[in-house]
Design a protein around this nucleic acid. Structure first.
Lengths: 270, 270
DNA sequence: CGCCTAACTAACCATCTAGTCCAATAATTG
DNA sequence: CAATTATTGGACTAGATGGTTAGTTAGGCG
């Protein structure tokens, strides 16, 4: 083995960034500054971190973890590589931050939709809609979750923040189900987790696999008409399941439309 | 620019690798040959390609395209690197071959399930079961499709073989739907593509995202009980949707069980 | 039976990639 | 003002990675 004094010192940097204090006015240094049209470029730590996170989110959501390039992230964020590593320890740490942010987005979107106190049927329809709508408007969520599952959830496992985000949702759904059952609108014995997985699945898979599905079935799944049709289908399927065999079974189309086009469609859909 | 004569030599091999022409048949020369139980290991082109494809499938399904390493593939296949490149032009070509094989698997599994001529209700239940079962028993399918969709289907687009595999299925489903409708068992106006996407989604998403879902909901989605429950749920949901509002609507649980455990469960599940 | 081609190997290489080092400079804050 | 922190810049490196080159072996066939 070649005598290599420093074996490797990636991480173990003692973070002493002792810069020589005085000696620095020597050269004509500033000559290189060619930023003329740029705005003053102030020092804004959290703003920069925000830029980096946004750029990283875009890159990870486009290429996955292994396909993502740190150089691409710094290019997107228009910062130097050193600055990225000044704020984040490693590519992996940055990825975890982005992942946490993704889950935070999901949680926020969920809490934005008021479900408590509503008629159970309306509440469920609204849950279906908003779940699908979130996947449409936050496409990064899908790729980030796919990426994380490719890695078998090893980062989520280490992030205690993420693990708690969904507890409230399960409770909410449970309440809606109980109310619906009590009023004879829903069947009994519905598992809220199973149900939520299904509602998510119906929209998530459709969007996540739209490239291959579009190819196979020769249909543009992202067209506004098909998205609208899909949303209706998800609601139909979910409500049919819930109402089938209920005490006071509404035979079909419990509330056919009543709340079409609740929000701007596809805020930043691609 | 330190004057570096030799550009770079990672492995710092002691130069001159001139293999002496003759001296190598001395019995233990290829000492690495400790394959005793193995068959003589003749020169077997298609057998080798098979080994490579199997190894590549395993690697791609574990790591995705960018995470997969050619070196890992050759290690798994126990062949030399150049042999891989002798049979396949590039990592990408190999990936496409694996992808095609994946779709071929799906097609084969679909055709193995006889649906024509059955009672529509039975046929649909069977379709739900077999779809889920295929995802369980061929876990590579899920990751390969996720990977391909991460790349926005660019390889599928170039592979005409893949694009035709599903045409037959759509026709089959359409026939079942029509029959069910004619007999007053199913609702009318069901889109076969939309339906098939939903049936797939309910199982696919559950399995594909099981790592994060298991974490979030604190439930082992891969346990035999939960898999069985999921299968029942998928059937319930699909049949509820199809039968809701049918002319001759069967209120609930059209055919409660009747065909439980059709095959060995989880043939090569992990 | 020798030769040609295809199967096969080991070493090697060019390049890429995450991450570092060493400055230098400008803004912020105590 | 002085210490700190944010920021840029560029050169640099270890190691990994896809792919190639030069060479060896086996087997079918004329």
């Amino acid at each position: 083995m070649s005598p290599r004094p420093a074996p490797r010192r990636r991480r173990d940097t003692p973070e002493l960034t002792a810069r020589a204090p005085g000696v620095l006015m020597s050269g004509e240094g500033p000559g290189a500054h060619r930023d003329v049209s740029e705005r003053p470029r102030k020092r804004d730590s959290i703003g920069t971190q925000e830029k980096i996170l946004a750029a990283a989110m875009a890159e990870f959501a486009r290429k996955g973890y292994d396909g993502a390039r740190v150089d691409a992230i710094i290019a997107r964020a228009k910062i130097s590589k050193n600055l990225l590593y000044h704020h984040f320890r490693s590519k992996e740490e940055l990825y975890v931050k982005v992942l946490e942010r993704t889950y935070e987005t999901m949680r926020r979107r969920q809490e934005e939709v008021p479900l408590a106190g509503l008629d159970p049927v309306v509440a469920m329809r609204r849950l279906c809609e908003s779940t699908f709508q979130t996947f449409i408007e936050e496409p990064e969520v899908i790729v980030m979750m796919n990426t994380e599952n490719l890695h078998r959830g090893k980062h989520v496992a280490k992030s205690p923040i993420i693990r708690q985000l969904y507890s409230r949702l399960a409770v909410t759904i449970q309440a809606i189900l109980e109310q619906g059952e009590a009023r004879g609108l829903f069947r009994s014995g519905v598992d809220p987790v199973e149900l939520y997985i299904s509602i998510s699945a119906l929209g998530y898979f459709y969007l996540s696999n739209r490239y291959t599905l579009s190819m196979i079935f020769d249909r543009d799944l992202k067209s506004p008409e098909n998205l609208a049709r899909r949303k209706a289908h998800i609601i139909e399927m979910t409500m049919a399941y819930l109402t089938a065999g209920a005490a006071d079974a509404a035979p079909l189309a419990a509330v056919p439309s009543a709340e079409a086009a609740p929000k701007a469609q596809a805020r930043k859909a691609r």
